[in-house]
């Protein structure tokens, strides 16, 4: 097998990358091309695989029942003017508002690439404790709903009281700007 880059030397380096979504990529290079650190973009990268995923999304929109839910490709982000087509080509977003402007696509992407759409890590300190309370209250509301559905009223009352306590402790929408 010849090196895919120079098409001259035999390929002795075989790079494979496996993604969570089952996509596997391979690249066969000679040693010379592999160690040309000056041109790292010529080599396969996670980014390229990710871009490939963006392409796939176009063909198989990740919506319920195959409903096409894509944003119009030329619709710009209200803050930075980035279009969905630009995002797809670059694999990078233009600003924080792009996450809202292309919300459906970004959410589908995160679900597939990251396997989750819910941050469980650190919060900026300046957001204060309110953000924790809001998260906790959301979780409790879901539990409350489930308890009512299961007619487990004793539990439901407990959740209701906890939610009230949280709401009294600190207003949840202290930072409406960052809240979705």
């Amino acid at each position: 097998m010849l090196c895919v880059k120079c098409q001259k030397n035999p390929a002795t380096v075989h790079i494979q990358q496996f993604m969570l979504n089952g996509v596997k990529t391979e690249l066969h290079l000679c040693q010379e091309c592999t160690f040309k650190l000056d041109n790292p973009e010529m080599l396969i990268s996670f980014e390229n695989v990710f871009k490939g995923f963006l392409e796939q999304m176009k063909i198989f929109p990740v919506g319920a029942g195959g409903v096409n839910m894509m944003t119009r490709p030329d619709a710009p982000c209200s803050r930075c003017g980035m279009t969905y087509n630009q995002f797809k080509a670059a694999g990078k977003l233009g600003c924080d508002t792009c996450y809202q402007s292309f919300s459906k696509e970004v959410q589908a992407l995160l679900k597939n690439v990251q396997g989750s759409i819910r941050h469980e890590g650190k919060y900026p300190k300046r957001l204060g404790a309110g953000i924790f309370n809001k998260r906790q209250a959301d979780d409790l509301r879901a539990q409350l709903k489930k308890a009512i559905e299961e007619e487990n009223f004793e539990e439901a009352a407990k959740f209701r009281d906890e939610i009230r306590a949280l709401e009294l402790a600190e207003p949840c929408d202290k930072n409406p700007e960052v809240a979705q």
């Binding site: 990710f50 990078k92 996450y99 992407l109 995160l110 469980e120 890590g121 650190k122 900026p124 809240a179």
Partner: peptide, 27 residues
């Protein structure tokens, strides 16, 4: 934490820290 004392980071309630590439979003 030191940087955050004087700078506001791009942060989303559900997604966490927002990054240029969605492969880094969250933490």
């Amino acid at each position: 934490d030191l940087i955050e004392e004087s700078v506001e980071f791009a942060f989303h309630m559900e997604y966490g820290y927002l990054t240029a590439c969605p492969t880094n979003t969250g933490t």
